[in-house]
């Protein structure tokens, strides 16, 4: 059983406070959806929890299985089983998806268990190949530079493919549905569900629209506005939100 706890978290960047006291607790096997308008702080929350050096935590804590992680660099958090699927995955020239992911897989395994067996390039080829099948991806992408020249859809698939390879304990998925057509959305959602079932990981599913929730049923839904969670509920909250729009919730705080 793994637990990610976000406690009264406040964070700023360039002297502007963006997160204004976030509380959230995600356990293994749970799916939490966070919904909110553009600019409400969803990506910032993901970045801060993952350890982006651009943001400064001014108050609050982040704990993974009781251990405070807010001072750890991003790689140490990843080593502990945290994962972030980026809203806008960055391109890295000349670094192949295959090479970098193999190094990541080995590094994480070593960090979790000093005696972990080193995965050879040929073994890894099988792992990545299976994960790419799960996302119905063209295998050629594994040999290409990370995200370079990928279409929007390919980038999103590649994010979840990486999740499938790394098998995190807690995954933060930032607008994984944006920019996907309906078929791609179904594939990606199916893959997430499959991984969730297989690994019993905890998921924080960030979304702007409730569309993806037709495919992935959340256990909890939270509405974020102006850096705060203003309302939490179950999946019905997402439907209400769809019907009435954000304005209603923003006007009548929880």
């Amino acid at each position: 059983m793994d637990t990610l706890e976000i406690i009264a978290l406040r964070a700023e960047t360039n002297k502007t406070e963006i997160l204004k006291g976030i509380n959230l607790k995600i356990r293994s096997g749970e799916i939490h959806a966070i919904m909110g308008k553009n600019g409400s702080g969803k990506s910032t929350l993901c970045n801060v929890v993952m350890g982006h050096p651009k943001y400064k935590i001014t108050e609050g804590k982040i704990k993974l299985n009781g251990k405070k992680i807010e001072k750890l660099p991003a790689n140490k958090r990843a080593n502990l089983g945290l994962f972030l699927a980026f809203q806008n995955p960055t391109e890295i020239q000349g670094v192949t998806l295959n090479n970098f992911l193999r190094l990541a897989k080995n590094t994480n395994a070593k960090a979790q268990n000093k005696k972990a067996k080193h995965i050879s390039p040929s073994e890894f080829l099988q792992t990545i190949s299976q994960s790419m099948d799960l996302l119905e991806m063209d295998k050629k992408l594994a040999g290409r530079s990370v995200n370079e020249g990928f279409s929007g859809g390919e980038k999103k698939r590649a994010e979840i493919m990486q999740m499938a390879v790394l098998k995190p304990r807690i995954a933060l998925l930032d607008e994984i549905d944006s920019g996907l057509d309906i078929d791609a959305l179904k594939t990606v959602a199916k893959a997430i569900k499959r991984l969730h079932k297989q690994t019993k990981c905890g998921i924080l599913l960030i979304t702007h629209y409730q569309r993806i929730l037709n495919y992935i049923t959340p256990d909890f839904v939270h509405i974020i506005s102006n850096g705060k969670i203003i309302k939490s509920g179950d999946k019905k909250l997402a439907q209400k939100l769809e019907k009435h729009g954000y304005e209603k919730f923003v006007k009548e705080p929880a």
């Binding site: 980026f86 970098f100 990541a104």
Partner: peptide, 14 residues
């Protein structure tokens, strides 16, 4: 910084 963060978020040291 974005590229560094991306790779590190996957577990690579700086």
């Amino acid at each position: 910084e974005e590229q560094l963060f991306y790779l590190m978020s996957r577990g690579l040291s700086e």
